[in-house]
Computed example of a mutant assay.
Amino acid sequence: MQNRITQLFNIQYPIIQAGMVWCSGWRLASAVSNAGGLGLIGAGSMSADLLREHIQKCITATSKPFGVNLPLLYAHIDQHIQVLLDEKVKIVFTSAGNPATYTARLKEAGITVVHVVSSTKFALKAQQAGVDAIVAEGFEAGGHNGREETTTLCLIPSVADAVSIPVIAAGGIASGRAMLAAFALGAEGVQVGSAFAVSEESSAHHIFKQRVVEALEGETILTLKQLTPVRLIKNNFYEQIKKAETNGASAEDLKNIVSKGRSKKGIFEGDLNEGELEIGQVSAQLKAVKPAASVITDIWEEFEQARKNIF
């Protein structure tokens, strides 16, 4: 398939791996890129030096295009930006912040910039800031999320109708059928998180991966709306958050609970009780840990078959 997304990134399949904290290192990004998708290194859980190391290792591991996902909410963002410029990264996905702050600087360096949004309002702002494409992410997604709780089914057509640049659908996509639905709604590519979070090359702990593939429908919930909304598997940590919110906890109180390295504890170290287990609703559809290349192949083959079945 050739469309604006495959041409923009020079990739075979319009399938992008999400840049997820504690999951998306150079091994996963290079595996996805080598399989024909677009792999992303997740900078959110990395220091500037560690990000530089992962970029250099990814360059060695693949000759295909790859990018870096850069959450804009962290204090050391300027150091990360400098690393991207020093290492001549070609593709950057920004999220969790104002795209107007860094897009022009990145574009001046010849970088293709994509911004992640959860509403049409912010999609228009991202387009105005000069990004090359938009990831429209429904609230089914794991990780940082939109307070509006707009579903992917509602968000994608609204954003696609509002902007002229390509739209990548995210949130609840882990199959070819979901990809075909996203294309029918106006997307030209999909960003897949949860399925790659539990792939063999993901740097997440094997205990976390196993918990995700065992997750049932209804076991995740969107929480922490006073801070930055995040979707979690319900566990003891979530119960602490729920109790604090019920008792009228302030944003500062919630920060104190979350700031104890909870996402690292849950995703990277495999603490299923006290860790922050970030994952999407689609986890209930994931049944096995498999190679990243198989994730892409399975999605693409099902996409093609579903398209033939419908048309």
Rank of each mutant, 00 (worst) to 15 (best):
Q7L: 13
V21C: 12
R27K: 14
V32R: 06
S33I: 08
N34G: 06
G39C: 06
G42H: 01
S45V: 05
L50N: 09
L51T: 11
K57I: 05
C58A: 15
I59M: 11
T62Q: 06
G67I: 05
V68M: 09
L72V: 09
H80A: 10
H80E: 12
I81W: 02
V89K: 04
N98Q: 14
R105D: 14
T112R: 12
V114M: 02
V114K: 00
T120L: 13
K121R: 15
A129G: 11
D132R: 02
G143H: 05
T150N: 14
T150W: 07
T151D: 15
L153P: 11
C154M: 14
V159E: 04
A160M: 10
D161Q: 15
V167Y: 02
A169Y: 07
I173L: 09
A178H: 14
A178M: 11
M179C: 12
L180S: 06
F183S: 08
A184T: 15
L185N: 02
E188C: 10
V190W: 01
S199R: 00
E201K: 05
I207L: 13
F208D: 02
F208L: 06
Q210L: 10
V212K: 01
V213G: 00
A215N: 03
T223M: 07
L224S: 07
L227Q: 12
K234R: 11
N235Q: 05
A249H: 10
S250P: 10
L254V: 10
S259V: 08
S263K: 10
G266D: 00
I267C: 07
L272N: 11
E274F: 09
L277M: 13
S283G: 09
A284Q: 14
Q285V: 03
A288R: 11
A288D: 14
A293Q: 15
I296K: 10
F303D: 05
E304W: 08
A306T: 14
